[in-house]
Every structure is written in structure tokens, then in C-alpha cells.
Amino acid sequence: MTASAPPLTRSASNLNSYVARNAKALAGLGVVVVALIVAYRWDGTQTTAVMARTVREAAPLILAALCGLVGERSGIINIGIEGQLLLSAFCGFMVGSYSGSIILAVVAALAVAGLAGTFLAWTSIRLRMDQIIAGTVINIFAIGATSFFYVPNRTMATIPTVSLGFLSDVPLVGPMLFDHGPLTYAALVAVAVVHVALFETRWGLRTRAVGEHPSAADTVGVDIFRLRYLNLTLAGMLAGLGGMALIQSAGVFNRGMSNGKGFIALAVMLIGRYRPTGVLAAALLFGFFNALQAQLQFKQVFDIPPQFFGMIPFVLTIAVLAIAGISVRPPAAVGKHYEKE
């Protein structure tokens, strides 16, 4: 009896401290669940439609915001996400369109966005270029290059949605979580992967150290520059998946189709306070406002001009932030060049 007692108490206190640490988030989650149940009882079809769309709209934002998050956690600001989305959507589309292979399309998207990430790391580390400038270079280049090589009237095969068996038949939750295109699942999985990697692995500890206190990390033998190259490249690949998520359902590429999503992703990252779970929540919130707006407009529930519906997600996001008074503390070393001793 006595032998088994300590582990029991420890796990109990672990649970307690977990609840204590995440009290607000858990309370928020509870409210959301209750609200969803109430909404579903009130109007099941609409609620399901809105929530499924919420997740779908959130996916590219999640991936793009995680790209920014991994970069900044490693100490490098990435305002070139918009360009990475555009480049990867374009390259993925072109490769997919000419080769007919979705796998090749994804590979191309990951490669080009990853390369842009490597470029960002290189300009910062080797050239000591200002990171805001480097990100802007990526953005302008992406607008120019994707328009310059744009071929009108091409299409590619759409990426089919994947229903996860019986799970997708569960009311509300099924359409919401288990009946999506593969890149939407990728976004949800990426949140979990980045969260665990960042907070539970040696890589994560090192990454956070490099972002917060590079000289300390250097002292204990972390190769700061190598880690930044690696992380920015991997982060770019997340944005590459985000670019594919933009084209997965429609199968077309339009000029400038990222349409500010890379910048909205920056906002999502900041609202999520540089945490993957926070990014998930913020992106879902934004996706929800968007989905709600689309549904209200589609159903013509109110006689309000469409432009006012169009404003809803943006106005509500600002209002939520202003009321919650969320202030963000970026990683301490972000944006600074590191000098090796």
C-alpha cells in the first residue's frame, strides 16, 4: 500500500497543478463546449455548417501562424509568411497542375516555402540583414514572381476530403473535425506536434533558449546558427502546407490569393501569445467569425449590406483583444543579431 501511495499523490497533484495553471483556458473551453451544445440544440444544421467551416478557414492560418511562431521562438521575426504562402500555393499549384500528382505538388510547396525560410535565416545570420527588410523582400518577390509566371486558365485536381470512418458520422463533431481535406488535418496535427516538440523535447528547450537568451545557449554548447537555419526551414515548410491548404479545395491559383492571410497569421500568432495552443484558439476564433459572417450572409438572416458582414471578423478580433487586454511578450532575443564570442 505504502509503496503505491507516492505515485498516486504525485499524479493527483500533477493534475491539480495542470488545472490550476490552465484554469482560464479550461474555463474558456468549457464555455465553448456549452455554447456549442446549446447552439446545436437550437439549430443543428446551421451550427454544423458554421463549425465545419470554422475549422476549414482556420487551417491555413494555423499553419502560417505556427511558421511565425517557430521562427520567433528561435529569435527570428518572419514577416515574410505572406510571401511564403503565396509562393507555396503557386508552386504547389503549378507542379500539381502539370504533373497531375498531388504528392509532387505538396513536395514543391514545402520546398519553396522551406527555401524562403532558409533565405530568411541566411540573411539574418550571414548578412546580418534587418529581419523586417528580409521578410519584406520575400513578400514583394512572391507577388512579383507568382504574377510574372502566372499562367491563366489552368486548373489542377482538387485534393479530396478524407472522412475518417465512423468518426465523421458523429453529429456536429464529425463534420467539424473528421471530414476535411488532408491539409486541414495537417494543421490540427501540427499544433500538437509543435506544442510537444517545443515544450517537451530537447530541441524545444534549445529553441526557446536560443530565442530568449542566445548567449546562455551558446555557453552550454548549442549551435545557435545551425538551429536557426534548421528551424526557419522547418517553419517555412509549415507555411508551405498552409499554402497548399489555400488551394486544396478549389484547385485553382489566383494572383495574390494569399490576400493578407500571412499578416493575419502574424496577428493570430501574437493573440496566441507565441504558444501553439494559443495559436489554435486564436485561429479558430478568427475562422469562426469568418464562417459566421459567411453563413449569415448566405442565409440572408438580416438585411445588412455584405460589406458590414465582411467587417465582422476584423472588428470582433480587435474588440476581443481590447476587452481582454492581452499584451504580448515576444521572445527576448527576437530580431537581434547574435554575435559569437
Partner: peptide, 13 residues
């Protein structure tokens, strides 16, 4: 404490 990058992006739309 609303970051100006967030608010100005949102206000663009």
C-alpha cells in the same frame, strides 16, 4: 496593449 501590427492589419480590412 493591442499590438499595432494586429490592429492595423484588421483595420485595413
Amino acid at each position: 496593449g493591442v499590438h499595432e501590427v494586429i490592429s492595423t492589419i484588421m483595420l485595413n480590412f
